[in-house]
Design a protein around this nucleic acid. Sequence first.
RNA 1: GCGGACGUGGCGGAAAGGUAGACGCAAGGGACUUAAAAUCCCUUGGGAGAAAUCCCGUGAGGGUUCGAAUCCCUCCGUCCGCACCA
Length: 952
Amino acid sequence: MTTNSQKNERYNAREAEPRWQKVWDERGIFATKNDPPSRQGAAADRPAPTSRSPQGEAGKYYVLEMFPYPSGRIHMGHVRNYTMGDVVARYKRAMGFSVLHPMGWDAFGMPAENAAMDRKVHPKAWTYENIATMKGQLKSMGLSLDWAREIATCDPAYYKHQQKMFLDFLKAGLVERKQSKVNWDPVDQTVLANEQVIDGRGWRSGAVVEQRELTQWFFKISDYSQDLLAALDTLDRWPEKVRLMQKNWIGRSEGLLIRFMLDRATMPNMENELEIFTTRPDTLFGAKFMGLSPDHPLAAAAAAKNPKLAAFIEECHRMGTAQAEIDTAEKMGFDTGIRAVHPFDPNWKLPVYVANFILMDYGTGAIFGCPAHDQRDLDFVNKYGLGNTPVVCPPGQDPKTFVITDVAYDGDGTMINSRFLDGMTIAEAKEEVARRLENTFAAASTGAATSPPPPLRGRDREGGIANSGLEVTPLPNPPPQGGREKTMRGERITQSNNAPVAQRQVNYRLRDWGISRQRYWGCPIPIIHCAKCGVVPVPEKDLPVTLPDDVTFDRPGNPLDRHPTWKHVKCPQCGGDARRETDTMDTFVDSSWYFARFTDPWIANAPTDRKQVDRWLPVDQYIGGIEHAILHLLYSRFFTRAMKKTGHAGLDEPFAGLFTQGMVVHETYRKKNGDWAMPAEVKIETSGDTRRATLIATGEEVEIGPIEKMSKSKKNTVDPDDIMESYGADTARWFMLSDSPPERDVIWSEEGVQGASRFVQRLWRLVGEIADIKAPAARPAQFGDAALAVRKAAHRALANVSDDIARLRFNRCVAHIYECANALGEAIGTVESAVTPDLAWALREAGDILVCLFHPMMPHLAEECWAALGHKTLVATEAWPQLEPELLVESTVTLPVQINGKKRADVTVARDAGKTDIEAAVLALDAVKRALGGKSPKKVIVVPQRIVNVVA
RNA sequence: GCGGACGUGGCGGAAAGGUAGACGCAAGGGACUUAAAAUCCCUUGGGAGAAAUCCCGUGAGGGUUCGAAUCCCUCCGUCCGCACCA
């Protein structure tokens, strides 16, 4: 391909790209073997071992992009995501790392079933067709992926192991079956995720969603709440934003669990106490009422004797779960007639209300209301006339005159109106209340608290229920209705069954992960239900439990459930008639461990080969969208811990480095009739500052709308295939990395693509010109100024690009490559006819460096250029160029000179000039003399290598 | 409501507290061409000036500093996450 006429030929990406893809493929250079690194596949066609950093020598590097859902075709978001990963993979390979860069398919999920319903295709057929299409598209992008490790999560060879781990987790106590409230779509007869409920209706059916109690399988992620939270601090290569989002999601709060005795005369049944959780025990003397969730057992007990209360609770249940309704819902309550006794004052009785704003599944489902310092409580008392007493006085306010009317005060301050707490800070008061109450033991239901307490530590844990010996009826444990069990989600700091009035408790917002889905296209849960033996795990020898192929989608509901034979099996324990679990797993389970499977996707008898998992994990660089900041990434962190506990992995954190890339956005175009037009249908004309868009077909003018995320609904999508067809993959890849910082959104524009395409051609011409230069084989002993300038430009670019790739600042890499190309172009432009040998050598060296630098971004063009420069190797297996740091060091340095902080001149001094020399040189400058007007400066600040500032 | 991020030319964006606007796009002018495309050269934050040069400029207003796009305070705006979480 080395020709002298290259400068007249355009680079033909359409011809070159498949050709190089074939070469890479045939030589298998991106296949990563699980052998010792010195036997890496790529070693074969590498030049002699003189190579500067043979592959694999630097250790392992696992780069992974979030694998795609096979929805049909790749979109520009994929192009951006996978280009970034590929740049890292190719760079690390060149740096001598043994790189693992695999790809697979997140292949289970609802769209396949929807397609089955809409178009009568089998989900499996639909999925595998999509995989074939998308794989072809990814291959045409020239990604350096190890396709030998390809996995699809819908393959029984994959989900078999997932079922095995489910059973292992079950044995390890990490799986639980329990009742839970779910969003139920009565038309589609399935559970909907919260995101699938839009304005209280199913997103697909439009039916009003019901709340149903279903028995479901849960992964006990909440066992790891504290660990998942604490370990966030160790993830120093994660975006701060993602860590914060996870922290908020886990939602740790420290507080006090307080038992309020109930006034016996008002108790509906035999209950004698009400347990509440609070983070503000300091405000206990501001209490005005107690609040119960409508789902609270005590509310139910009271409702049994009060039809009006029962009706109120019923109304609360009818209230939608839709966000909009919750936002606007008025605080409503109903007095149960029950009275609770203040823990510090037996004569102080508080009314117990059922209130619509109290959640059953946080804390204990009950609160005490302190209206002065909580807006919700204030709204509530203002409606029911319960009044408020401020107990925290803001700094600078007079406690005598400080009142609360409509706005609760939740800031800092000094305790007031609070008896023994008065004068304390909030923190002191919290501590004092906790200290007193955890050393107080509950008395009779009439209210008196007794003391003194026995010593806290070392007490008998079998001590029984609270206030034994007094006239109380112990609360059954566990309680009859689901509520109380949920209070146990928190971790009690003080363990005691001897029941002090209060215990310190840490609560988490994080709920256990419900994984049951009433769907066909998912991983079957390997469980058998037997009337005699109960819940029986499928024996390991019977795995995988595979999905039946003969299913129908003509009716709503779960096809597995109505399959004539699939669910009917014999109980593995007693041999009697039994039935399979027909729920399948949430597809987030599939994606919670695929990164571990990639380390050895071939092993048939276990999910992972510990040797390989230990060698490759953690993923060194994970790249994907911010939309997975919480669920996928949190589930994977949990799953990795669970795999460690069950012996399938050896670490806690799967992703050492995480990068979240921005979206691809595009202008929108709207026709006169309100319909959207696709970018491909529109022609843009620019004259001066105005742009107008017309339909190519009809000439109709269309309105140019705001720039938005590419979406089918707004039709502002650009098909990657079209771009690769007309410009080539390299142009698309280059544009994706240009301009916008990778974590921000990138605006796809026709002009931008054309700019990228022009640069592809420019590089091709530039390399052609360099290839035409005859250079000496041996490195010259001396370099003239022109040659030195070229070498400096190339090595500066090398240093900058290396640094910026390592930090994933691809837009800056692009800029540095432009600079380098500009510098080389200029240098060549000045020589044309007579090139001295040193300059010729320098230009050839710079050409080689330049090609290596853009290879990770534009690999096909780089191969073509590499060959044109006369190399017989592949640039894809070439080592990263060796930097000569002395070329970055100038013998003189030009410092900007400021006068009173404003730049007024430059001064050029020797690089190692001392401060006094620099000062003298600066004061000799005309501009400085002029500014000083003969006076001497007040001060001269010299920052070595940086700047000089003269204070006049 | 709570938490967070961001705000720089016509546009995307560069700037370890140290020359604001790198690099690209767009625009304008010119060269080549019969012409177009492609390519190459020049100009391009605002203002004053023939020029040297000077003044103003990083959402607004204060502050710290020899020096602030960058740090601190107040405000405005945009975006994101969570949300009757007690």
